[in-house]
Structure formats: C-alpha cells, structure tokens
C-alpha cells in the first residue's frame, strides 16, 4: 500500500507530529506515515537514505528520519529500514537488501532479481523524466499525458528545487501546473543530463556533498548558459540545504548572467493567492524581457 498524493490533512497532521523547526517536506513525511498508520498497515517501509551517490549525502534529516518517525509513533509499529549508503561498499547494500528480503520471506535469489527489476524501472523512469516528461504521467498511455505548450511560442522557465518539493503539488503549491497554465515551458533538474550538470558543478571550489544541492547548482548554471528566460527556485521553509544552495545559486547566476530569478519559500501557511500573484508577475516580466 502506498500513501496517496499529499493533501492538506496530511500537512495538518505532520505539522502537529513534528517538532516546530522541521522543514515542510519532513512534516509532510510525518503526515504520510500517519496516514499509513491510521489506515492500519502491518509494517512501514522506510529506508534510511544516507547517501545515494558516493561521498555525498541527501541531508542530515534523511539520515535520522527512521529514528525521528520511530520516536513519534512509539512502540507498536514495525518499520523496515534498510540502510542505503553507497559511500560504503556494495556488499553492505546487498546485505541490507537480503535482510529486508528475508523479513518479507524472500530468498536471496528472489531479492536479487527484484532489485535488478527495481533498478531497471528506476532507469526507465529517469529516462522518461530526461525526455521532458512529468512524474505524474509515468506509466500512462502516451496520448493521455499532460502536454506542455509548444516550445517555439513560449517562455522557458528553469525550475529548481528538491524533487520532493517541485513534484509535490502541496509542497510546491502546484507551481508546475500554474506555470503551464500561464503558457510557460517548464524545465526541471531531471530534464538535464547528469554529465552536463556535473561538468558545471565541477567549477565550484568545493566538492558539493549534497546530492540534490549538487544537481541544483549544476542545473542552475546550465540553465543560465542555455539560457532560459527565468529561473524559479522553490524551497521549503526550514530546508537547511536549500538555505545555502539557493544563496549560492542566486549570487552566482546573477553575476554570470542577467536572467531573472524568483525564490519561492513555501511553508504550511503559504496562501495560494500569494504564490499565484508572484508567479504571474514573474512570468509577465520574463515575457516582457523576451519580447524586448
């Protein structure tokens, strides 16, 4: 069973369950776990994501998330928390997978096959995004996908942010659909090939140790070089990594090119009207600049 797309109710519950200073995505995460607990599942799959790329991290909260959740839902729940740490040897990952497989009653062979299948699916999904599609359209009939406006007549907006923010309709206040409705073509980090963003970020004087921060900074510079007509960075209130990544993006892009930037900081109190007004104003301005 998978929890449904985020809704207001989940945000409400998550806000109550998490400590004050927690960022919005983690509050939403608490809301999703709460939904699963209330629906009555036997166990919750909640991997501990340390690093999904060698010598990189996602963020400290991801590393402690299973423990934070366990503290908020004491005692009675079974959490399956494999350790995902690709900075360590691949043997660790295999051992962890086998442990999970064992827990679910699968033989090591079955686990290995399932893992290969999962990797293939992930690769397929990433290729799908790279081709300029949206996560919500994955697995749907080719014709039924939400099509973007044709490129030649429209603005191109680079959208930056963590995937769990920009693809979440609540956490991003539905920014993607609103931008589409305004006739802008939206490009995300996932639509850029990894080697291009990697080549860009290598110019940063320090190894960027946050996986998504690395992608975002690389993408921002790539977008600035393309160039797109505007950059929108959606951050969640309380996000620690974004607080510095956004600052680096803003200052370096401003120095490098004059493309307009908008940083939208969204929390559980953000109102729709405020977001719409700012997006409209930004798109209007970018369009005016383009026509000039």
């Amino acid at each position: 069973m998978v929890s449904p797309p985020t809704n207001r109710d989940m945000v409400q519950h998550g806000t109550t369950l998490a400590v004050d200073g927690t960022c919005l995505p983690v509050k939403i995460f608490y809301g999703h776990v709460n939904w699963l607990v209330e629906t009555g599942v036997d166990a919750i799959f909640l991997p501990r994501l340390i690093s999904t790329s060698p010598r990189e991290y996602i963020c400290p909260k991801f590393m402690g998330l299973p423990d934070m959740i366990a503290a908020a839902f004491p005692g009675q729940y079974c959490f399956i928390t494999p350790l995902v740490n690709l900075s360590c040897s691949s043997r660790l990952l295999r051992k962890e997978l086998e442990r999970v497989g064992n827990l679910l009653g699968a033989s090591p062979r079955q686990t290995r096959l399932a893992w290969d299948e999962a990797l293939a699916a992930q690769k397929d999904y990433q290729a799908f995004l790279l081709a300029g599609n949206w996560p919500g359209d994955y697995g749907k009939e080719p014709g039924s996908a939400v099509s973007q406006p044709a490129e030649d007549t429209h603005l191109r907006i680079g959208l930056l942010g963590h995937s769990y923010v920009i693809y979440d309709r609540v956490a991003s206040m539905d920014a993607v659909h609103r931008l589409h409705a305004m006739g802008a073509k939206v490009l995300t980090v996932d639509m850029l090939p990894a080697d291009r963003t990697d080549a860009q970020v290598r110019r940063f004087p320090k190894r960027m140790f946050w996986t998504s921060g690395r992608r975002i900074l690389g993408a921002a510079w790539e977008f600035a070089d393309m160039p797109v007509d505007g950059l929108i960075y959606i951050t969640a209130f309380g996000c620690g990594t974004d607080s510095l990544t956004a600052e680096l993006v803003e200052r370096t892009v401003r120095r490098r090119s004059g493309i307009p930037q908008l940083i939208l900081n969204i929390d559980e109190h953000t109102g729709q009207a405020g977001v719409v007004t700012r997006l409209e104003a930004f798109v209007d301005m970018a369009r005016w600049r383009r026509g000039r």
């Binding site: 400590v19 400290p60 402690g64 998330l65 934070m68 503290a71 309380g238 990594t241 607080s243």
Partner: peptide
C-alpha cells in the same frame, strides 16, 4: 533555529526524556 542535525536530536529526545524520567528543555 533550523539546525538540521539538532532537529533530528530534538525529535528523538522526548523518548529519552520519558524512558529516563528526565526533564529536557529545548532552547532554540
């Protein structure tokens, strides 16, 4: 405020407090 590692600790400390019957004050 918003310190990432300490928010993890802050989320967990209530359990420590309860198990050890020890009052914990968090100052942000």
């Amino acid at each position: 405020f918003t310190c990432m590692p300490e928010i993890v600790a802050q989320s967990i400390l209530p359990s420590v407090s309860e198990d050890h019957q020890l009052p914990i004050l968090t100052v942000v």
